[in-house]
Design a protein around this nucleic acid. Structure first.
Lengths: 225, 225
DNA sequence: TAATTTCTTAAGATTAGCTAAAGGTTTGTA
DNA sequence: TACAAACCTTTAGCTAATCTTAAGAAATTA
């Protein structure tokens, strides 16, 4: 998955580039509008998604967007806008963008929007299963043997993370970063509490939990045979 | 369902084309009046609906409309007009169009109008039910146990959205986008207020609301057994 | 066994949603 | 045009659900 990121503030672009690459995207960065426009048009069909800063010195994000839309109506475009620079009501129609985010925004929020747009494009399903447990992201529902189980926000997010990485270990540090947006070593037992909560709601009595504890590392949901 | 879209501003046409295709329409785009007229007349019986920009360089939307009406009185035609360029009162009589929208308009508004016209044409019924509550889109009426309940525009739109997605969660962000055309996280409680209004008008006293709150996510009307 | 890590529970802090009320806008009518 | 009515949106206090912290119990490892 190839992303074009046009953003002049290096602090933001660096942060985003790093984060997106961690998620497996290949990120091309343009640090001004002219360069961004050039890259966007030269490789318009190469990119799976474009992230454009609204306010750019020289060529603005909206100009890039308009130019791109003339030759390609498909590629998802997300705007990153500074506060109060856009009139909400006019926005949608005028630009041809698919979505936009107001700075400052949480990285996870951006990731979520990207995923929605990608799914629209690829038609990817959004249901994760393990045993008799099923989690549907689109309708935000968890069921066990068909019966609905109500999870809280955090429980849902944590279970989603574990299921997305079925078969792999999710390290505590990674869970802390992804679900709690905490990027340093914090002495807390929140994760344990929420794992406990999920287990209570979804485990079968008298048998091993479907979430395995990897002591000193984190948690894992095992791949089924 | 085949749509002819005649619009010269690529930002708007791109946005509309994409949105309509997402909704399952096949969209043919003409980016100027001459081409639009040609396509409209060549395939006049192929199209289920026509969307014409009012102001077009060369051949105007109204000319296309008049030409089409000479050979086909059936196909629904909707005009997209820039603000204040049309005298409303004269409009209806002069053109033979079925409806028109002033820019900027919310995409959902366009979609709603298209649906009304399509249904008129096909005679399709469009009633959503939950328990003793019934919502009829065509006549824009809600009844409870047969008695009419008057909802405002927004209340109606919100209830319609929830009913169209019966059994699924409608996320707050999605509601904001669909009903209010706001595409970023806005700190507001309008949704709550309108949910409250609908509940007041339609809930049975002394029993759970027919609209379930999914904390941190949105609302859902549950499927009946 | 001692040290470390995880589990579990419960209480306190925080936040999302509910509701009423007020201000602002639009629409209809005299 | 001015007024009234209907509707939409914002605000703020309240309540209840959720999240976080903390602390002892249990499990695991050296």
């Amino acid at each position: 998955m190839r992303v074009l990121l046009v953003e002049d503030e290096s602090s933001i672009s660096g942060f985003l580039k790093e984060g997106l690459e961690e998620e497996g995207f290949a990120v091309d960065l343009a640090d001004n509008g002219r360069k961004g426009l050039e890259m966007a048009l030269d490789f318009v069909n190469e990119y799976d998604i474009m992230l454009l800063d609204w306010m750019l010195p020289g060529v603005s994000g909206i100009e890039i967007c308009r130019s791109v839309r003339k030759v390609n109506q498909e590629v998802p475009i997300i705007f990153l806008t500074a506060k109060n620079t856009v009139d909400d009501t006019v926005f949608g129609l005028e630009t041809g963008a698919n979505d936009y985010l107001k700075k400052p925004f949480a990285f996870e929020e951006l990731l979520a929007r990207i995923r929605v747009l990608m799914r629209k494009k690829t038609g990817e399903q959004s249901v994760f299963k393990i045993g008799d447990i099923q989690l549907d992201i689109d309708i935000h529902e968890v069921t066990k043997s068909g019966r609905q189980i109500i999870l809280t926000q955090k429980e849902f997010a944590l279970l989603e993370l574990l299921l997305r990485n079925k078969g792999k270990v999710c390290r505590r540090t990674r869970i802390m970063e992804k679900i709690w947006d905490v990027h340093f070593d914090k002495d807390t037992a929140v994760i344990d509490v929420f794992i406990n909560g999920i287990r209570k709601k979804l485990d079968d009595k008298n048998s091993e939990s479907f979430i395995q504890t990897i002591r000193g590392v984190g948690y894992r949901i095992n791949q089924e045979e």
